[in-house]
Simulated scan of single mutants.
Amino acid sequence: MALVEVTVIPLGTGSTSLSSFVAGCVRVLEQAEDVKYQLTPMGTVLEGDLPRLMELVRQMHEQPFLAGATRVSTTIRIDDRRDKEGTMQGKVASVETKLITPGGTD
């Protein structure tokens, strides 16, 4: 299972407000029942099968164009750990455990 952080930035929109464009991207994810996601103030983290996540990123990248943007910049970061299954919740829990018991191992 992979984690992908994606930030889609519409340019050439004529406005500094981008929330309606972000909402269009999130609608793509709402329809993807096989993928977990977490919206953050600066991007979105996706959890699932890497080929599926990449397809969703492509669809998210297209949303601002469909809403009238003339240019879109998309940034992607991939965490694809293959020695054990990684999840959004598991990564956060690992850090929280170390806050309680410093020096713990993975």
Rank of each mutant, 00 (worst) to 15 (best):
M42P: 14
T74Y: 05
V26D: 02
S20Q: 06
M88C: 12
S19V: 03
D83E: 11
V72M: 04
R58E: 03
G14W: 09
G48F: 08
H61A: 01
L46S: 06
I100L: 14
A23E: 03
D80M: 13
S73W: 03
S73Q: 03
T74L: 09
R82W: 12
R52C: 10
E96K: 12
P64R: 00
R52S: 10
Q89H: 14
L39R: 07
G24F: 08
G24M: 06
V35C: 13
G86M: 05
E5N: 10
V4W: 05
I100N: 04
L56T: 01
K84F: 14
V28T: 01
E96S: 14
A32Q: 05
E85D: 14
P51F: 05
P10T: 00
A2T: 02
M60V: 02
E33W: 15
G48M: 02
P41Q: 01
A2E: 00
K91T: 00
L18M: 08
R27M: 06
L29V: 07
R52Y: 08
T97Y: 10
T7V: 14
G14C: 06
K84C: 06
G86K: 05
L11Q: 05
M54Y: 08
T40Y: 13
V6I: 08
K36T: 05
V92W: 11
A93P: 11
L66K: 12
A67E: 07
I9T: 07
E33R: 15
L3M: 12
L46M: 12
F21G: 01
L39V: 15
S73R: 01
H61L: 04
Q31E: 10
V4A: 04
M42C: 09
P102W: 03
I9C: 08
K84M: 04
G14R: 05
E5C: 13
L11K: 10
P41L: 04
S73H: 08
R52W: 10
R71H: 09
S17M: 10
A69R: 03
K36G: 07
R81A: 00
S94Q: 09
L53C: 11
D49M: 12
D106S: 13
T75C: 11
T13W: 05
R71S: 08
E85F: 15
K36H: 13
A93W: 04
L11T: 01
Y37T: 03
D79V: 14
Q63A: 09
C25S: 07
P51V: 01
S17R: 05
G14E: 00
L50V: 08
T44S: 11
I78Y: 06
L53M: 09
T97E: 04
T40Q: 11
Q63Y: 01
S17F: 10
P51E: 00
Q59T: 02
G86L: 12
L3H: 03
Q59K: 12
G103E: 01
E30F: 15
M88P: 15
G68C: 10
V4K: 02
L66V: 06
P102L: 04
I78G: 04
R81W: 04
V8L: 09
D79W: 06
A32M: 11
P10N: 00
R58H: 07
V92I: 14
G90K: 07
T40C: 15
Y37S: 04
G86H: 02
V26S: 04
R71L: 10
A32R: 04
Q59M: 10
I100C: 03
L46Y: 07
R77G: 02
L18E: 01
T87E: 03
